[in-house]
Structure formats: C-alpha cells, structure tokens
Design a protein around this nucleic acid. Structure first.
Lengths: 337, 337
DNA sequence: CTGTTAGCGCGTTCAC
DNA sequence: GTGAACGCGCTAACAG
C-alpha cells in the first residue's frame, strides 16, 4: 500500500534528523553540508524514493529545466534528425524537451510560445526565421535564450544556427549549369508554405537568370506522392532537361514518375534532390543532392543555447556549410542534346 | 523598455480594483464573478499581457497540463506518425507534450520517467510493454494515468492501445504460406533490441512450424542500409524464396539488394515488409506489407488517456486491427518452382 | 557548517 | 458575489 502522497523534502529532513535546508543542499550538490551528512541524506532520500517537486523549485528560481522546441513537422526525417541531435545534447545536460509541431503555421507557433512561456523554460528553440511579429516581441521581452534553427539570418531573435538556403539553391543551380542543363524546372510545395524551399528556388533562379524556370506545386501531402504526381503534371507541360526538388523524398517520387513516363534518368532528364538522406545510399542510381548537416546542426544548436543558458557569450548567427553530392541522376549534357 | 518581471495576477487585480481571487476566477472561467467584472478583468489581463505561471498553479493543484510521451526513436516515420496523431489530440485539449526518445533502452526510459514525475504530469505515455520493473512500480504507485502504445497486452500498467505483433507475424506468414513459399527468411535487428519485431518473427515461425527460418540480424544503423546489407549477407548463405523484413524501410533496402544481386522480385524471390508506409505507394513494384494504423493509434491512444484524466472509465486494453496489403513483391509459387 | 525566516504566484477554504 | 487568510514544496538570504 504505497502512501498516497509522495515524500517531500520535509519528510526526508525529519527522518534524517536535520533541517530542510541541509537536505536541499545535499540533494542539489551545493556546498554547505558536511560530507558525512550528505551521504547519509542521499542514502535516505533514495530509499524513501524521494523525488523533488520541479514545480516548487521552478517557482522559486523562476526558471526551469524545460526547453521548448518547435518544429514544423515530424514527417520526412529532416526535423526528426535535427531534433534527435538536440535532444541527445540536452538530455545529457539534464534538460527535458517540450516539443511542438506547427505544421508551418506562424499562429500555431505563437500560441505555443505563449503557453510555453508560462513554464518559465530555460530556453526556446524555433525552426526558421519566419515568425509572427508578436512571437518575436514576446521572446525578446522575456530574456529567455532563443535559438532559431535550420535557416540563417544576420538578424536573429537571439541566436541562430542553420544553413543559407538561397546559397544552397545557387549551389544546385551551378552544378546543373556547369553540366550544361538549360531547361530547368522545380517541383515543390505551394508558394509561401515553406519559405526555405522558396529561397532555394530563388537561388536556382539567380543562376539560370536567363531561363524561365517552371515550377510545379502540387497540393500538400506525402512527399513521395507529391513528388510523383507533381512530376507527372510537370512533364505534361513539356519535358525539362533537369528537375530540382524540394527534398530527396519528392525527388525519389519524381524518379519513379520519370520511370513510369518512360524517361530515362539521367539520359533524358536530370534529377536533383535536397538533404542527402540515407535512402539515397541504397538506390541503384545515386541521387544528385545537397547534403545538409542535420544532426550536427542539432548538436551545434543545442550547445549554442546551453552556452547562452550558462551565460557564456557565443556568436549570434552561425551558418553551417552544405555540400553538393554529385550522383548519377545528373550528367554532362552534350552540345547536340 | 519592457518591465523585467512579467505581470502577475496581483498586478491585474490591482489595476482592476478587485481582489486576486476575482481575477483568478475570471481567468479560469469558473463561477463566482459577475459577468461585468469578468469581461472587464479579461480585457485588462489581455492588454497587460498577463500570462499565468504554470509552476505556481501546478504546485497548488498538484497536477499539470503536461503529458509525457516516451518513444524509442524518431527515425523511420512510424513513431513520428503515432506521435503526430497524439499531439494533435492533446493540443486541442490544451496539453503540452514533454517528449523523450529512449533508443530502445529500458534504463533510459526509467530515468526519464523519474525526471518527468517531478513535474506532476497529467499523464504518461510509454511505447510498448517492455519496461524496467521499477518503471512499472513507480507508475502504478503514482496514480497518474499511463498509456502503453504500439504493442498489446492483457496486463497493462494502466491502459494500452496497440496492435498484436505476434498475430501480425502470423498474418504475414499465412500470406506467404498460402502462396506456396517454403524457404522463408527474416531480416531484422539484433535479438532483443526490438521485442515487437521478435514477436512478429515468432508469429511467422508459428506458421512455418516445420521449416527452419534463417534470420539475418545486421548491426544497428540506418534501416535502408541495414536492410540492404542484411539481405546481401543473407543471400550469401543460400537463397530463400521469401524474405520478411522488420519494416518497409528495410524491405526497400532489401529490394535494392536483390536487384543488385540479380534476383528478380517477385519471380525469383518474394519480399514482405511491415507498416505500409507511404513510400510503398510510389514504387514501380508495389510492396507486399502489413498496414499498421499509426495515426489512428495515436488518436485513439490520446483519447483513451484524456478520458482517464477526466475520470471517465475506458477499456484498459485495446487491440487495433492490422491489414495485409498484397502487393507485387510476392506471387503464387508454381509447384515446379 | 547549520538552521531560521521569508517568500516564489497561485488556488483552496472559509468567512463576509 | 466577494475577499482575506493560508498553504502548495521548495530555495535565497540571512543568522548563528
């Protein structure tokens, strides 16, 4: 018959015959208790299954060991990997994660931030740099360390670790241009849905400044499927010589669509993905893509914010490098092609 | 220059010229305030950007609107989809999620549960039914609603919503047996790493009770890659006529491996996956697999636990049905084959 | 090194 | 309908 009420610090103090403060100090590992008492108290606390009440602690110190993390979505591995990198780092440091997914909605993000703030979190992490103005104001007034991840800006709310999506787009574009492609197209999401994807498209556009780049924007849905159908739709309106995709998932769907449409990759059409996911490692035809440092980004971001929490100054905005992986879905175009 | 300290309930009360209690009642929407005062207070609170302190509230009521969710991993979409279903439901109900990934470690799960308990969460959700005994004891003594998800048992800690993995294995086995396969093999993770996968293997075994089923258990890693290499390794030791995989990712890797090894699917070898992921929808050769109701499971689980939180009695253990999707990676075996 | 005092911000209780 | 006490469990600041 377990007691209804869990043991509190007072119970431990009573049993140990010391004051509450000695127990508090012993448990937190701060100075001010003799080693003898400390070991004794620790032993007792363990056998009483004492568990400190975080609410009470956070109320006093006006700060918790909760870190809020907001992601657009769990789908598609990308954010799951960034998250995974962050969580591992936070976990080792003793922080728990309160996680939210916004589905790319700024208002959803805002209302989550409001709710989270009521917990006095140690830090807040947002994906990207595109927020409701109120979100930014709220956060900046709060003094809580904030990290914006995945995208890059010179003017972060507080700190920022990510990649430059426009540059990544340029990188993809340059690769294609150097190979001699001249009729590029893009398969992506509805305009404005994902501003990073739009930035990459702009990067590609800036390289192919002369050419018009058709974009197919299938309605939202599973990336494999939207890539597949978006490609079929695109091809209907004329065949480009290279297609850039929002990400590897869609590119994979696109490859399948090309196969179904009888278009040989890379002989009749080039395919370029984005992210460098593991799936590309098992494909019989290796995908040309941009490798993004997702786990590293998570770890770097987490360390940055931990430093901020501990009052260590760090550089406010860090851009991580991306790498073009030249696969077998693109190849040099002959002049006569 | 924003004030350093955020407004508290007392500030709102002072400005409104009422007592703290009237503000508290107005904000919580409980009876005991005149409608006139209530609207006045609400207006003031909004313009003062008042945000209640969750720590203080939880300390008093000994209960929070935090729900803890423990998952083995974010990788592979499966748990991400279950999570997504749960989060949507919890969000609408006003709960925030504290999320953990255990990487299939029971001790990691235990230490997370301990930390979480200090927040007086409204509920705790664990993946699967295989826990450290202390976890179970701790949870049962805590009176906090607990949900075990993804697996099924008649003896849950508190409540359980999932699928019966042994039966799912039988379903896969029966399908193959009816088609005439007789040299089955399994590509999965190291034994004991994922007890659900092991249960499915046992389910298959029970159907092919006579035949010996070889199992390839490549070391942990990315599922596409382990499926790929595990299959190559398996084939070295002789070619089975059908291979069952831990999941669709590995099955996809396996298909690629078969392709590389010159084995035609399904003519020379059958492939059976598990989960029915979206990727199977774009493959030129449709994968035979078991479709698991992941999002539905998340929603059902969340509703079950919300009912428990609200004191509504619900059935303790619910098994959701799975469905065999007969694709093009398996086909009837001729006698002479 | 040890204990005492005084809150942290809010909700329960019980007066009015 | 309203408000004054009091306490939730813990820690900062001080006293000894």
């Amino acid at each position: 018959m377990p007691r209804a009420k869990p043991a509190k610090i007072e119970d431990v103090a009573a049993k140990a015959g010391v004051s509450i403060m000695s127990v508090s100090r012993a448990l937190r590992g701060v100075e001010g208790v003799s080693e003898k008492k400390r070991t004794e108290i620790l032993k007792l606390a363990r056998q009483m299954k004492y568990m400190p009440n975080s609410n009470a602690r956070s109320l006093v110190v006006a700060n918790s060991n909760l870190i809020g993390i907001s992601l657009p979505t769990f789908a598609g591995e990308v954010f799951a990997e960034i998250l995974s990198g962050m969580r591992g780092t936070f976990d080792s440091a003793g922080y728990s994660s309160v996680i939210d997914t916004t589905e790319y909605s700024r208002t959803a993000e805002l209302s989550w931030v409001k709710r989270l703030l009521s917990w006095q979190p140690a830090a807040i992490i947002l994906t990207g740099i595109d927020h409701d103005p109120e979100t930014r104001a709220l956060l900046q007034a709060s003094k809580i360390p904030v990290l914006e991840i995945w995208d890059h800006t010179g003017d972060p709310i507080d700190a920022c670790v990510g990649i430059d999506h426009f540059s990544a787009g340029e990188l993809m574009g340059q690769h294609a241009m150097e190979l001699g492609y001249c009729r590029p197209a893009f398969v992506t999401t509805p305009r404005g849905h994902d501003i990073r994807a739009d930035a990459r498209l702009e990067g590609v556009r800036s390289v192919f400044s002369g050419a018009e780049i058709r974009a197919s924007r299938p309605p939202l849905g599973n990336a494999f499927l939207t890539g597949f159908h978006g490609t079929l739709k695109l091809i209907e309106g004329g065949t480009p010589d290279v297609i850039f995709y929002l990400n590897d998932h869609m590119a994979f769907g696109g490859m399948m669509a090309c196969g179904q449409a009888g278009l040989q990759v890379p002989d009749q059409i080039g395919i370029v993905g984005f992210n460098g996911l593991d799936i590309t490692g098992v494909l019989p035809v290796k995908l040309t893509t941009i490798k993004t440092p997702r786990r590293l980004m998570g770890i770097t971001g987490a360390r940055t914010i931990l430093a901020k929490i501990n009052g260590v100054s760090v550089e406010a905005a860090k851009a991580l490098p991306v790498e073009l992986v030249a696969g077998e879905t693109t190849r040099p175009q002959s002049i006569t092609n």
